[in-house]
Design a protein around this nucleic acid. Structure first.
Length: 493
RNA sequence: GGCGCGUUAUCCAAGAGGCUAGGAGCCGGUCUGCAAAACCGUUAACGUCGGUUCGAAUCCGACACGCGCCUCCA
């Protein structure tokens, strides 16, 4: 089964066939850099990160372009608020964006262009649009005449009359049609500007993505992505600009990720109910956040809540615990990752062997189905359970078992590489999660250790009353004791 | 008002005509002085009403509820 992707343009899953065999050109709308990124950006980043990684894993040579829109009304407003220039604001939030995406473990795109580095390309497209009659100059601004582009609104499946029925479109006297949008804005005093044939000014929103995508990927390319909220007007306008200027089909497959909700409502700047990536990462590990995002299909909405993040963490802990157990065995006896011989395994081993043999094919099948990461995770869990059962039932670790274990470990690393998970050593990751929890507890490690020692003595002398008293005392402070044959460890509940 | 999406067990969440999704939880077991943790096992579902079909969570229609877009948004 080959890769199938849901194309917003057609509303259907389609077989993915790239323009040039073996190669993929992909453009994803980045951010307008005027503030810190929120978890909605994190979702878009992670979603297209795994799409990028999976395409490469599937053998494609991928050119992945993700832009910075570093000139825009909002950036200028922010600069005015802080009595500084637009460049200072843009550079600050470009840096913040880079830091956040690095924290999230995103692979670097092939190119990360800035709008202000592509002003000449922007001007060239606008000039072509004017020449072809798709755009007109009006009092220092240039507008796109939407009525000249019959396919306008084909992506969002609307028509101009319906849009106007909404009656919320302001009629500007500079525009011929209320839905016309600015390609170029004449600069007001004190605003940043670039020279153009239509006077000093700056690009409107939308045109920079047409310019940068065409610059790096050509007039027609394979995948264009972004959040669902960009379908209209941003992507609709990009199509009008790009196809109007080039006369060619702009994008073959449009991919859009769903929203992050808070209490089942869309999280957004205007509603004020958003969390920044940095805030969230103070509370939750980056892989936990990524795991949470991947636990739902990328087109579905996800509800961001402590409970859901906690559940994601529990799930990830389950997988990491299993990997940790595998590593512990392998550290004692390193072995090559060659596939074990089925005949020599016990029945449980054979069950596991089957799961393991199916792991990659089933993973690929899930991801080929419009990047179904939720299903992919389900398959991982099935393998974890089979592995745990095998480890529990296997008394003697033979060479064949070892080989199987090494193979499983290798496959988890391979899949983790595509999903951006399991990058940490299991022991380190589990320790980090434990430490993070320990930070919330009002008792020192020394005190805990002292009480554990006292309890051990009590238990040794069969003073179970005192022993249980200490256990309850610690539990009341959120400390869970973990007794084993090798002594007592503790964890934060 | 227009257009679109969704409703799966206690919760989260895949699936999309007949094939155990998965996770968290509950419950049972192993372990333990007793527990806990861990592991294993188990449980349960397709919003309502009609229709198509040998067979419907899945396809079609109506209804209810929720959400999104139509203004800056990932």
């Amino acid at each position: 089964m080959a890769l199938r992707v849901y194309n917003t343009m057609t509303g259907e899953k389609e077989l993915f066939v790239p323009l040039v065999p073996g190669k993929v050109g992909m453009y994803v709308c980045g951010v307008t850099v005027y503030d810190y990124c929120h978890i909605g950006h994190a979702r878009a980043g992670v979603v297209f990160d795994i799409i990028f990684r999976y395409l490469k894993y599937a053998g494609y040579e991928v050119t992945y372009v993700r832009n910075y829109t570093d000139i825009d009304d909002k950036i200028i407003n922010r600069a005015n608020q802080e009595s500084t220039d637009y460049r200072t604001i843009a550079d600050r939030y470009i840096q913040a964006f880079d830091e956040d995406m690095a924290l999230l473990g995103l692979a670097k795109p092939t190119v990360e262009p800035k709008a202000t580095d592509h002003i000449s390309g922007i001007i060239a497209i606008i000039a072509a649009l004017i020449e072809k009659g798709h755009a007109y100059i009006s009092d220092g601004d240039v507008y796109y005449a939407v009525e000249t582009f019959p396919d306008y609104l084909k992506l969002s499946g609307r028509n101009l009359d319906e849009m106007q029925a909404g009656a919320r479109v302001e009629v500007g006297d500079k525009k011929r049609h209320p839905m016309d949008f600015a390609l170029w804005k004449g600069s007001k005093p004190g605003e940043p500007w670039w020279q153009s044939p239509w006077g000093n000014g700056r690009p409107g929103w939308h045109i920079e993505c047409s310019a940068m995508s065409m610059e790096f990927l050509g007039k027609t390319f394979d995948i264009h992505g972004g959040g669902k909220d960009l379908v209209f007007p941003h992507h609709e306008n990009e199509i009008a600009q790009s196809e109007g200027a080039s006369g060619c089909q702009f994008v073959r497959y449009w991919l859009h990720n769903g929203f992050v909700n808070i209490n089942a409502e869309k999280m957004s700047k205007s509603l004020g109910n958003f969390f920044t990536i940095r805030e969230v990462l103070k509370k939750y590990d980056q892989e936990t956040l990524r795991f949470f995002i991947l636990s739902a299909h990328y087109r579905s909405p996800i509800d961001f809540s402590d409970q859901n993040l906690d559940e994601a963490q529990s799930g990830l802990e389950r997988i990491y615990s299993c990997l940790s157990a595998l590593d512990e065995i392998l550290e004692k006896q390193p072995v090559s990752a060659e596939i074990a011989v089925v005949e020599s395994l016990q029945q449980v081993g054979q069950e596991l062997q089957e799961k393991v043999n199916q792991l990659i094919p089933r993973f690929v099948e899930a991801m080929d189905d419009d990047f179904n990461s939720a299903q992919a995770l389900g398959i991982l869990f099935e393998t974890v359970r089979a592995t745990n059962r095998f480890l529990a039932d296997t008394k003697e670790i033979t060479y064949v078992c070892l080989s199987l274990i090494a193979h499983i470990r290798h496959l988890f690393a391979e899949i983790g590489d595509v999903l951006g998970l399991f990058a940490a050593s299991p022991a380190t990751w589990l320790g980090k999660v434990k430490d993070a929890k320990a930070g919330k507890v009002d008792i020192t490690d020394e005190e805990i250790e002292r009480l554990i020692a006292e309890r051990s003595e009590a238990r040794a002398s069969k003073n179970f009353g005192r022993s249980d008293e200490i256990r309850d005392l610690l539990l009341a402070k959120g400390i869970q004791l973990l007794d084993s044959a090798h002594g007592t460890k503790w964890d934060v509940k």
